[in-house]
Structure formats: C-alpha cells, structure tokens
Simulated scan of single mutants.
Amino acid sequence: MAGPAVPSRDDTEVLTETTRVADELLRPRADETARKGVPRGHLDALAAAGALGLATRAPALLRQATEIISAADGATWFVYAQHHQPVRAVAASDNQALRDRWLTPLLTGRTLSGHAISHLARPGPPAITATPGTGGGWALNGRIAWLTSWGLADVVLVGAIAPDDRVLFVLLPAEDLDSPQAVHRHALWSMHATHAVAIDLNDVPVGRDQVVSMPQHTDWLRTYLNHNANTHPAVFGSLRATTQFLGRHETFKAWADSAKLRADQLRARAYTLIDTQPPGEAVDERLATRAAAVDLALRTAAACIAAAGARSMSSDTTAARLMAEASFHLVHGQTPQAKDAYAQLAGVRCPLTHCPHTRPAPT
C-alpha cells in the first residue's frame, strides 16, 4: 500500500485541488502517460487532493471530479474510475471486519482498488464461479477477462457466480491473484496505459473475512443495466479536452463553439435524468442521450485529427490520444441496450441487437 493519508476536504477544496493536479501534473504529461503507462504517483496526487474518497459523497461531486480528470488525461481517469465501485461495495457491506480493515484506507487513497465485475453482465456460462469450501470459505475458478490497474491496485473487488444464482463479491489483495502463469497482458490501441490484463483463477481461496456481499444475480444485473443506461461524466470530460484542442485552431473554432453548446445541452439532460428520475425509468431517453454524447465526442475528436493534419497519424500526438480516448467510450460500460441505441442513432439496422427501426438523433 502507498499514498498519503489526508484529512477530509469540503467539496470546494476537493475540486480546487483536483483541478490543480489535473492542470499541473496530469495534462502536461498526458501524451507521455499514454505511451508509458499511468504511474502510481498520479493516483497518490489525486488521493492527496481528496479525489479518491468521493464514492460515498454526493454524486454530483464525483461527476465534477470525473470531468476534470478525464479532460486532463483519459488513461489516469480510467484507473481512477476503477477505485470507486470497490469503495461503495465495502462501505455498504454487512461484513464489519472487512469495513474496519479496508474502508478508511480506501477512502484516503492509502489503498488503491480495482474491480473485475463486468463479466457478470455477459450472457452464457459464468466466467468465474465460486465453490463453497470448509469453514465458510470459497474457491474461485475461471478467468477475469479484463482487469484494469494491474500493478497499481492493492486490492481487487472480484465477482463470481455462486450457487442459487447469487453473486459472491470478494475483496482480495492483488498479490493473491498473481502468478507468472496466470496473468496475461492485453495489447490495446486505446487505453493501453491503464495496465489491463486477463487473469486465470485456479482454486483461489477466499476467507469469510474477505466476503463483501452476496446479492441475487438478477437483482445485481438489473442495477448494473440501469446504471449503464446513463451517460458517463467522462464523456463530457473528453469533450472538454477536444473542444479546447479545436479552439486553438482558427479554422475549427466554430466547430469547437458548436460542440461546447451541444455538450452543455446533453450534459444537462443526462444529469437531470440521473438526479430526477428513479433508476429504471426513462431508460430509452437515457440511452439516446448517452449515444448522442458519445457520438458528439467521437466526431469532435475526429475533428482534432483533421485540425492537426498528417502529423496526427503518429500515435504519440495529442490528437491521436484524444481520438483513442473518445473511441473508448463506445465500449466503456457497454450493454446490448447501449449498443442498440448507438446503432439507431447512426441510422443502422442491426439484426444482432434486434433493432425494430431506425430513428433520428435526439435534438
């Protein structure tokens, strides 16, 4: 474990310090970070700003911090984003011993976390299973197809399918998953810097003190799908970065101004839906808004390529990085419903997602 313990900051202090870290550390090094990988020092600086302790505070505060960080450096943002779900899970756990051990280190950023849960939303046989063992323990088997923050995270929240259609969520020290034969590093063209790996689990033991929760799979899946119908704030961070880039090129200033205005409209709609509508309601509108925001981010990032010209074909340029970061939002938190909404926005009939018809983009 690493990173400073910090006192609780109020909302204004958190945003001020997070902005300072973004401006002084993350943004100036973003192109280098995309090539070399996110360093732990970036997360420690965000921890010192109080930004790693926002999962249990007002959602609007985390949204603002997310936009600030993702606008400065998309790779650091995605590693940062992995931390919040484990924090929420530990904070809500009935396991008092687990909360006592981990919650404060997680909230202060002295402990950095990652998670492996998206496989629980995929159809077909379980990717990871949990088999009951002696003394109330468990054994995990299968493959974590995607784990971000490998080599940075101290602990990992892992979800596995247990008997009776329950999901066993456990918090494991990262070293419990590590072995030369088990870890397979991904080669990525987008977000390569986020230390993404696949990990094979062969009878990995889990003690009772490591169990976070055991909800019904159907209940968890409903919550997951409802959450991922929303537009992620990082999309608006991406738009901040691309419109700022375009604003420095005279030919594209009008594009930048138009994109800023449209982004503000979509942000207002997205956040109003989150703040005023219960989860599970207005799902079509949420999905359409998400698709429109991602589409705007992609088109504006493509304009950055055009503005920069032929030199943007080099993978180490800012324009290329912005294009790769915007493209990532096509698959981040993707569900069949989100894919369907994007296909309809693009005017494409998609038999794989059973699109009943096409419709114009929302205005």
Rank of each mutant, 00 (worst) to 15 (best):
S149M: 10
T131S: 10
A139G: 14
I117G: 05
L152T: 11
G159M: 09
L152G: 10
G142Y: 10
A160Q: 12
V158W: 00
D154S: 04
G124P: 04
S113W: 07
G137L: 03
G114I: 04
P126W: 02
L106N: 00
W138V: 03
D100K: 10
A127F: 06
L112T: 15
D100Y: 06
N141E: 14
S149C: 12
H119M: 00
W102V: 04
G124M: 00
L112C: 13
P125H: 07
G109I: 06
S113D: 07
A153L: 09
L106P: 03
R99W: 02
H115P: 06
D100G: 12
W102T: 04
A116G: 11
T104F: 06
L103W: 05
T108D: 08
L147K: 07
N141A: 15
R143A: 11
W146H: 15
P123A: 11
G159H: 05
R110A: 14
G124Y: 00
G114D: 06
W138L: 01
N141D: 15
V158D: 02
P132V: 04
L106M: 05
L157F: 04
G137Q: 11
L140M: 14
T104L: 01
S118D: 15
W102E: 01
G133V: 06
A145L: 14
T111M: 12
P132Y: 03
L147N: 12
A153I: 12
L157Q: 10
A127S: 00
T104D: 13
V158K: 08
L106V: 04
R122L: 15
S118F: 14
A127R: 02
A116R: 07
W138Y: 03
G137Y: 08
R143W: 13
R101M: 00
S118E: 15
G124F: 05
R101N: 05
T148M: 14
D154V: 11
L106H: 06
P125S: 08
V158S: 02
R122G: 00
L157T: 11
T134L: 04
V155E: 11
T111A: 12
A130S: 10
A153D: 07
G124I: 05
V155S: 10
S113G: 09
L152M: 09
T104E: 14
W146E: 15
P105G: 09
T131N: 05
T108R: 13
L147W: 06
P132G: 00
R143F: 13
